[in-house]
Design a protein around this nucleic acid. Structure first.
Lengths: 382, 382
DNA sequence: CTGTTAGCGCATTCAT
DNA sequence: ATGAATGCGCTAACAG
């Protein structure tokens, strides 16, 4: 078949073990020997057999990254950051050895809870060294339980699991009841101690609530009193947190009575923003501001408003969330909330690799900051 | 450690071989037996050990997808399509068996040739079942040779390699000169026959040249005579093809004399578009149209023009390329060339899995179509 | 510092 | 249709 460790060993005149040690660099090997081995590796164009080494070492160099939608820059930016922290640095030659290289496996769940579970299983099957779960979680008790159990099994198998951009997972009622202890479960739990923290995975979260509050407060300060809200899918943590921040700001101004009526739920995409804005205009023609769940939705809303002949921001102000690159390029440039996506991805990767110490409480929260641009202004005098 | 095949076999009262056969479903097993096995699998929450099975079977279910930049929707859309074709369909439960699942490994090369090679090695190490290389290639003889050799080795190792969005690879001079035949190389080549086509990998390409030609022709038809071109990085196939199409249209109109002076090279990002547009305006204040290498660059150019008080399209028309989702949302909406990104990704995935027959000549070309929107108009009368 | 010896967990021959 | 045996290529104790 292809070149194996033994072939290299033969050519270098050493044992297979020595070659392995040279390649992994985690054991002292004499200089001349090491050079002979490296030369043989080069001459034979030897490439380690990953599966074999993963089998023997009981761990692989794969790191899973679960995202809701790769085509969405929000996730692309996070995934890119995670990978840059794991992956091969540019100068690396990339020959046989260099076992330090982690390979990121970016998995697209499409927001489907089932697929999320399936990928987790696939990753466990590959004996992934770590898994980073990005994006908001679906808030369904059934799914949460399944997710927690799957993650528990991954951790029990030695994988580090880190949440990025989603709130920490808490078992409903902290698993006080042990009545479901089947034989298999007991086995698993018995060995859980060796893996990561038994308290559940580490998390890097965004201050969605705080960001949303600031944003709406900004609008209120400008003088807006009738604000519509274009929410994401119901039953998603991200959706809920942003909405809560918005409502909190409204409540502070005594404006929350009308909030439910002026909220439209949809997906995190452009057409949802378009449709939602139309619906909002129908429900409340006197609207002076539209707060969108994210930048993409905001862009859809802008399109709808333009089509209706409504001027932004003179007639209606519009805000986004996330501050994706295109937000600055929209016309008018979007007022939004900046989330440190890349920084969060890097931090999640470092935690996943065990390079950084766990943050206090197992949760690191990234700040959200208001970016005020041209899409917001005081409401029309009317 | 964790549950193994043997554990399942014991519980089901059969041999490990039988369990393996049930799980892989590629061998006849009696109904009742199969049911007992499946039940044991469920009860034990058994998850196949990927590395072990890859080692034994000499192939894994990983499929590599190389992209230049995951954060760029252009690649995100392609990657998403590839993965949707490989990955778990929604209905799948995702328990132990189901060996049909392929796991996409999305690798971010950042456009670096070295990293591209490194990832290819990493994937070979994992014994990837297939590899899809997306995006334009760097046109450097040295790198091309390295790439061809790496791809050859991958194919020799049994992996299918498919190019998506990049032109077919041709060895310079078809390797007629055998003077570099080291022992190792001869070995590799001796076994090449068993792998995929010895003629090099299959390719799904975009008609970048044709699309660019149409686009510039459109501008010329509107009456433009002084067009600036914002090119991507030099020495990239995509850059070159689009530029060639542009120049071809110009030449048809007898306007190619000035072409080189009115071309600015840069990266495929917004700031390059911004800077490039400024530079173009400096070189030729009488410009009436700016043709950008892609939509992102076009957006940057629009920002620069707006800042300069130049109206689009009244004073200067601007065009993009790719028709990414945000192109329609820009203000004004971008005239651009639509590339069937998702379709190409799907086709590449099907070829990679061997589900579709190879296209004639090993190359499938996807059409590019002109999308005329609001960012182009006849030049000002002046 | 280096060689020897055992498996890691599974897919396959072969037998039966 | 099923079981028993063998080895995939590598790493991890142990020796020395």
């Amino acid at each position: 078949m292809s070149v194996t460790l033994a072939d290299v060993a033969a050519r270098a005149g050493v044992s297979a073990a020595t070659v392995s040690r040279v390649l992994n660099g985690n054991y002292p090997v004499a200089g001349p020997t090491r050079r002979r081995v490296m030369q043989a590796v080069d001459e034979l164009e030897y490439v380690v057999n990953g599966p074999a080494s993963a089998l023997a070492a009981a761990t692989s160099d794969l790191v899973g990254v679960l995202v809701n939608d790769i085509a969405d820059p929000f996730f692309g930016i996070i995934a890119s950051a995670v990978q840059s922290e794991l992956g091969p640095a540019d100068p690396t030659g990339g020959r046989g050895g260099r076992a330090q290289q982690k390979l990121a496996v970016v998995c697209n769940t499409g927001g489907s809870p089932t697929r999320e579970l399936t990928y987790l299983t696939l990753l466990q099957r590959q004996r992934a060294a770590a898994v980073v779960l990005t994006g908001g979680a679906v808030e369904d008790p059934h799914h949460s339980a399944a997710l927690i159990s799957r993650i528990g099994r991954l951790e029990a198998a030695g994988a580090r699991v880190v949440l990025c951009g989603r709130p920490p997972l808490r078992a409903p009622e902290a698993g006080r009841q042990a009545e479901t202890g089947t034989e298999a479960e007991r086995d698993t739990e018995g060995e859980e101690g060796e893996g990561a923290a038994a308290r559940g995975p580490l998390a890097v979260t965004f201050d969605n609530r705080g960001g949303a509050r600031q944003l709406t407060a900004h609008l209120l300060t400008l003088g807006h009193r009738r604000l519509g809200y274009l929410a994401g899918p119901a039953a998603r943590t991200t959706t809920r947190h942003r909405l809560e921040g918005h409502r909190a700001a409204l409540a502070e101004a005594g404006l929350d009575g009308d909030a439910e009526r002026l909220t439209v739920y949809g997906r995190y995409d452009r057409s949802s923003g378009y449709d939602g804005a139309m619906e909002l205009l129908r429900r409340e023609p006197g609207l002076t501001a539209i707060v969108a769940a994210n930048d993409t939705v905001a862009l859809g809303a802008c399109a709808a408003l333009r089509e209706r002949g409504v001027r932004i921001p003179q007639d209606v102000s519009v805000t986004g969330f996330d501050d994706l690159p295109f937000a600055a390029d929209a016309a008018p440039a979007l007022t939004t909330v900046r989330l440190p996506l890349a920084e969060a991805g890097i931090q999640a990767a470092r935690l996943a690799l065990g390079r950084d110490a766990a943050p206090p409480g197992g949760v690191a929260t990234c700040p959200a900051s208001l970016i005020s641009r041209a899409s917001t202004a005081p409401p029309p005098p009317a």
